[in-house]
Every structure is written in structure tokens, then in C-alpha cells.
Design a protein around this nucleic acid. Structure first.
Lengths: 234, 234
DNA sequence: ATGCCATTTCGATAAGTTATGGAAAGTCTC
DNA sequence: GAGACTTTCCATAACTTATCGAAATGGCAT
């Protein structure tokens, strides 16, 4: 039951050559590529097996269900939550901190291997395995609302319900990541950076008392993110 | 090849009683109920057949593919586009017109039998059958952007790129309908009316030069919608 | 009446999906 | 070498969408 040896030589050999590295990581790598290309539901276990160099049924030795591959994939992607936690308690204007959090979250949604809604769909069907997904989302929402509240209380933001504002801000991120991932025919298509900027700009423009501050806030947010990023693990 | 008789008596009789009305409509009705309850992907043709009172394979006489049921379902739901077309050319302040369009679109997304993203997913896999879906979306986007442009040119809205603003506004609608449909654990849950208000409020708050006008705009938008609604077919 | 045709349904079945169980084929330890 | 452990394979169950041809009815022309 070890199941994570780097390149163990034990066990029945594969018909098609030995695995390059850790079979588990290899499977996740190949599955991710396929998910990105075709989406989760449209990718079959047979295809993943073929890409990873083993038989379909052998996959079930490493992942008892297809959802478990997605789960493993999700656990490698936790970024914007840590930034939000760091910025929520940081002193200084709320505007730049909120902008940084929203922008980072949107960037992460865009660059994640899977559509947010595909994650959510699977998470909802496997609540016992994906509790962390919902916990993370609730935490991000709480931190976002907290920053909004700080801004309102400081008079920096207009009067607004912090929870509603956070819901709208995150909902906008989610709605717009879709437009980045799957541009609708007939509409302008966006880069991840453009989508993230549009989303954060829109939310801040709605909240700020002094609209003219937006340009400065963008720069400050970039500085905050940059200052935090290099020491991502500490 | 008629295939839409009200309650035709021809053909081999069913094992379980005769159909109540038009078989096609009956199938759509039962399928809709199942889609609402379980989602499109999780509903099988066998279940639809059982609900509609015929065998699984008989379904394929009325709908050659599962997607065609969804397509038929979609064609019965076209509301907010007509309102947008009517309001785009109407004189008067842009704020109330934009609010009315966004609110009506959000309400429609919330009350539609299926999640917007499920529609989109299927539409993307069957572009030849769902061209109307993308056409409608592009039209709604164009009309929304046009109203925004009118507001900007009249000095009623802040300077903003109309296309970006429309993308953000519709993206927010889509992101928030999800929160109505599938409330995330740990977060406040919303009614359709609350979600629609939150979305339209947010977009207008971001665009308006005079924030204080928002309350009046809400009332004016409701009046516009009410004035237009009773004559929905003319 | 009788025969023929269009309409609608059914049963059988193909091809593909996720998932399970047991046998097989190696390495590792003693 | 014997036995245990690990990993892979094959066979197959149960379920999915979709196709095909046969069967069962009503209506229409003769």
C-alpha cells in the first residue's frame, strides 16, 4: 500500500516499457494534459491509460475512481487563498489589497488546468472527497468580505454589504474566466491578464469612493503581489 | 415525417397506455423536469423514456440524439433578448434601460430549466444545431454594449469601454446565476430576485456617474419591464 | 373487404463507458 | 529457493447512447 515510490522496479512489468518516473505523478501529468485539451467529462480512462502507458484497468490500482485523479490535481493548486490570508491582516488601504486578491484569484482560475465549473460539478458529486474545495472557497469568500468591510469602515469604499460584494466579486471572476477559457463566437477574446484586470477593475470601480485612485491601486496591488510571491512557501 | 400530431392514433400502440398529448411535447416536459432535478448529463434516456411512458429506443424516433431534446427545450426560452432589442432603441436615460435588461437576463438565467453553463457546454459540442444559441448571445451582448455606449456618450455613465462593460455585466449575471442555482456550502443563499438585483446593482454602481440615482433607476427599470411585459408577443 | 403504405413502437444488439475480481509476472526478504 | 509484496494484465459486469429491422396499428385506394 505504499503506492508512491519514485520509480519502483517491483511488480509485473508493463507491456509497453517501464514507467519514466513515479506512475502516480505520470498519470496526473497525462490526465491534466487531456483534461485541458478536452475537458474532464470528455476524457476517458482508456485515453489516460494509453497516454500514461498502461492498461485501462491498471489505472484503478493508482486511482480507485476517476474523480480521484481530479482530486489529486486540485490539491496541487492552492494559490490565491494564501495571498488573501496574508493581505487580509496587512495594514494599509483596502483597495490595493482587494485588487491584488481578486486579480490573483482570476489569474489562478484562468491558468488552472480545469474550468472552475467542472471542478465544482465534480466536487458537488463527491462532497466527502472534495470538502477542501468548499472549505477553501468559503475561506476566500470570508477573507474577501473582510477586506471589503475594512474598506467600507475606513471610508475608502462606498457603503455596501461586504458579503454581497464578495459574492459579486468572486462570481464575476468565475463568470469571466469562462470567457477567457472558451471565447464565445462573435465576441472579443481575452488573455488571462486582460480578464483578470477587467474583473478587478470592475469590482474596484464599483466600490471605490474616489474613482481616480484606481490607477494607483493597480500599481500598488502589483507591488503587493510581487512582494509576496517570491516567498510563497514561507 | 409529420411527427408533431397532437395525439395521433396511428402507429403501433404503446405497451403502457396511449400518450396523453403530443408525444414530442410530453417528452420535452418530462425531460425538463428530470434535467432540473438532476442536470442534463446525469439524466439518462432510459429515465426520460420511463417518465414519458415509452421504451428507451422509441425515444430516438422523436429525437435522434439526446442533445436534440435540449435544443428543443432551448428554443422555448427566448425572453431577455426581445426586451433588450426593444429597450436599446428606446429614448430616455440609459441607466434604467440597462438595469432592466440585466435584471431580466439574470431572472431568465435563474428560472431557466437548465444551468447556463450546461447549455453552453452542449451548444459547443453541437455547433451546427445550436447556432441560434450563440447568435442570441452575441446579439444580447451587442445590444448591451450599445446601451452602455449611449450612457457614456450622454455623460450618464463614466468613461468605459462598452464592449468590456457588457462582457463584465453578462459574465456577472452568469457567475451569479450559479450561486442561485447551486448555493455553495457556507455561503449565504439567494433568491432569483436577490441575485438579479445584486447583479444589476453592481454593474450600475460601477457605471453610474451619480451613484445617488440608483434607487430611482431601479424603479424606472421596473416600470419599463412592466410596460413591456404584458404585450410580450406583439 | 382487401391490400398497401405511412406512422409509431418495440426488442435485440452494437459499441463505448466506469469499475471490479482474480490471475499473472515480476522484485524483495529471508 | 520459498513465500510475501507490488504492480500489471485480462475478462467481464453493469450501464450508457444510438442503430436496425420487425411488428402493430390506422387510413386510403381499389
Amino acid at each position: 500500500m505504499a503506492k508512491d515510490a519514485a520509480s519502483s522496479t517491483a511488480g509485473r512489468p508493463r507491456l509497453s516499457g517501464a514507467p519514466a518516473g513515479s506512475p502516480r505523478q505520470e498519470i496526473i501529468r497525462e490526465a491534466t494534459a487531456l483534461f485541458v485539451a478536452k475537458g474532464y467529462a470528455e476524457t476517458t480512462m482508456s485515453e489516460i491509460a494509453r497516454s500514461a502507458g498502461l492498461r485501462q484497468s491498471s489505472l484503478y490500482y493508482w486511482f480507485a475512481r476517476k474523480e480521484h485523479i481530479l482530486q489529486a490535481l486540485l490539491e496541487e493548486n492552492r494559490g490565491s487563498l494564501a495571498l488573501a490570508a496574508a493581505l487580509e491582516v496587512r495594514p494599509g488601504p483596502a483597495g490595493a489589497r482587494l485588487y491584488a486578491v481578486l486579480h490573483a484569484d482570476a489569474m489562478q482560475l484562468c491558468s488552472a488546468p480545469l474550468d472552475f465549473y467542472e471542478f465544482e460539478r465534480v466536487a458537488r458529486s463527491q462532497p466527502q472527497n472534495f470538502g477542501a474545495f468548499f472549505d477553501d472557497y468559503a475561506a476566500l469568500h470570508r477573507l474577501t468580505a473582510s477586506i471589503v468591510r475594512q474598506g467600507v469602515e475606513a471610508g475608502e469604499f462606498q457603503a455596501a454589504d461586504p458579503e454581497d460584494a464578495a459574492t459579486a466579486a468572486l462570481g464575476l471572476n468565475e463568470g469571466l474566466q469562462r470567457h477567457y477559457r472558451q471565447p464565445l463566437p462573435g465576441l472579443r477574446s481575452y488573455t488571462a491578464e486582460q480578464v483578470s484586470g477587467l474583473s478587478a477593475d470592475t469590482t474596484l470601480a464599483r466600490l471605490l469612493v474616489m474613482q481616480a485612485d484606481l490607477a494607483d491601486i493597480r500599481a500598488d496591488a502589483a507591488a503587493l503581489t510581487a512582494a509576496w510571491n517570491p516567498t510563497a512557501e514561507s
